[in-house]
Computed example of a mutant assay.
Amino acid sequence: MRADDVLPRPLADYLARPLTAQFPGRRPGQARFDGPAGTLVHAAVADAVAGYLAGPAVSNDGGAYPAGRHSDALAAWARAAVRRLLGAPGGHVVFGPNMTTLTALFVRAAAEHVRPGDEIVCTELDHEANVAPWRAMARRRGAVVRTARLEEGALPASAVADVLSARTRWVAVSAASNALGATPDLAAVCAAAHRVGARVFVDAVQAVPHRAVDAAAWGADAVVASAYKFYGPHAGVLWIADEAAEPLRLAEQPSSAGDDLPGRLEPGTLAFEQLLGTAVAAEVLLGWDRAAVAEREAALARDLAQVLEAAPGVRRLTPGGDRVPVEVFFLPGMPAAEAAEAFAERGVSLTHGRFYAPGPLGAVAPGLPAALRAGVACYTTGEDVAAFAGALKEVAADAR
């Protein structure tokens, strides 16, 4: 199976359109900077899912009839597409509702081989979904959690290496912060962890939309992501390397799909329309010139940063260094929720709060109750940045 088999026209036709025209959700007068919380859906994804749900192929898998065989082929194709997207040959691909759920299921299974006194390393850079489950598991198993701290908003590999020991079993780390955009050197982190016999679980949710991911080059043992952050449906994907997967087979994990992976972590019927949409989204990203898209996003992010730096009364929190195109800031004279509403009234969508990332926000702005976050997506334009600049000028003036 391939993308052209599930689309009304060849995927190449979709990709030949101007990048912004590939997203039917774009609307005149609406500047969307809410991508870090969830992106617009690509036209090919929308067409594929709509066609599937309205067609004769809807079925559970495992059937000896055409629709059942179609579901088997669809699942196999979707897993293969995710492997290619994550640069992860071999291993196992698990589907679920989102990264948070898949991480919790994975940690629950991994707990079987964590003993009292063992150590788990988390980082100050990470989303709570890659911290809280590990902490909860460590409490249950009598393990110790060590935290790698940020340095000026960045996570150097040495910060992780410094808290490793012979007792470390897992390192949970982000490929890109959802709050600060910072991107650590994962190859160095994984190498340091492997030297002490530990494995590495990578949250790649914010990395996948903006960077070509290469789990094999990193040396990662597991990588998790969410399709709705890379122009697909609301679904999560988890890749587990063969060596890391073997112990999970014996975990006490309720499942209706037996002891083997991926069924061990997929307790129930798959949402085949979400698998289809995820596979098409993966094929879309693989069909783009990722380097060119990343360069375009970086240029727009620099423009956005300059707007924030030049705006009176605005405090920009985003650190320097290598990062994905996310900007975090606040207006001292206005609560973040009120400011977000003011931007929305001016046709600019951004998110506010702590973004389930108290670690990185607390590191760069201790005591700040909430911030504003603007992210550049592949469909962001210079006109969008200009709209943001105009809205910021008015909102900042109201805050003073």
Rank of each mutant, 00 (worst) to 15 (best):
P156V: 13
A50M: 00
Y65A: 13
A374S: 07
P116T: 02
A136F: 01
F388P: 04
P335Q: 08
C122D: 04
R115M: 09
A212W: 00
R17A: 13
C190Y: 09
D398C: 11
L86F: 13
M334P: 03
P56M: 10
A191E: 14
A64L: 14
R141E: 10
A88M: 05
P66W: 11
R264G: 04
V202Y: 07
G29M: 09
P267V: 03
C122H: 00
W288P: 00
A76M: 03
F201C: 13
V196D: 08
T380Q: 06
L372Y: 12
E309D: 15
S174K: 09
L286A: 14
A212K: 09
E383T: 13
G258H: 03
A54M: 01
P209T: 13
G390D: 10
E341P: 00
L180K: 03
G25D: 10
A172W: 02
F355L: 15
H127Y: 13
A161F: 11
A282C: 15
L276Y: 05
W170D: 13
Y231M: 08
R199P: 03
G91H: 03
A244T: 05
G55W: 06
C378D: 08
H234Y: 13
D203E: 11
A46W: 01
E252A: 15
T39M: 12
E341M: 11
L238Q: 08
A54R: 12
A111E: 12
S174P: 05
A357D: 08
R354M: 09
R302P: 00
V224D: 05
D185G: 14
V114H: 01
G320E: 10
G382R: 14
A371D: 11
A397Q: 13
P10W: 11
A154S: 14
A109T: 02
R296T: 13
D384W: 09
P267H: 02
A175S: 14
A357T: 11
L308T: 08
F95K: 03
A88C: 11
L248C: 08
A204E: 05
V205F: 09
S226D: 10
V145Y: 04
D259M: 11
S177F: 12
A281R: 10
D185L: 10
P358A: 10
A31K: 07
R302H: 12
T269C: 12
E383P: 00
Y379V: 02
E266Y: 01
V94K: 02
F201L: 15
E295W: 01
A12V: 07
